[in-house]
Amino acid sequence: MCLSIPAKIEKIDGETALCSVGGSTLQAHLELISDEQLKPGDYVLVHTGFAIQKLDEQEALLTLQTFKEYYELTENPEIEI
């Protein structure tokens, strides 16, 4: 039940959005994030029919990246301070 999935907004119609996840589509209510600027192409996290947050692409990349950089640093002790 606590499962939430990242879904891509295809179309916004008032307080709901048509979203796609993999090959299927689902409807997400937008009441809980109506403060956000949303547009087709954005990803939202959908939980029990409600979008509960917009996914942050920048942060998503950063999470993977910061780790890579950190790892490269510790992997190469020469450049460690």
């Binding site: 403060d35 509960i52 947050q53 996914l55 942050d56 692409e57 942060e59 950063l62 999470t63």
Partner: peptide, 18 residues
């Protein structure tokens, strides 16, 4: 926060208010 692509430090304020 590790899950920064979703979790903001302040959370979802609109949802908290409701």
């Amino acid at each position: 926060i590790q899950y920064t692509r979703v979790v903001k430090p302040e959370g979802n304020i609109k949802a908290q208010q409701m």
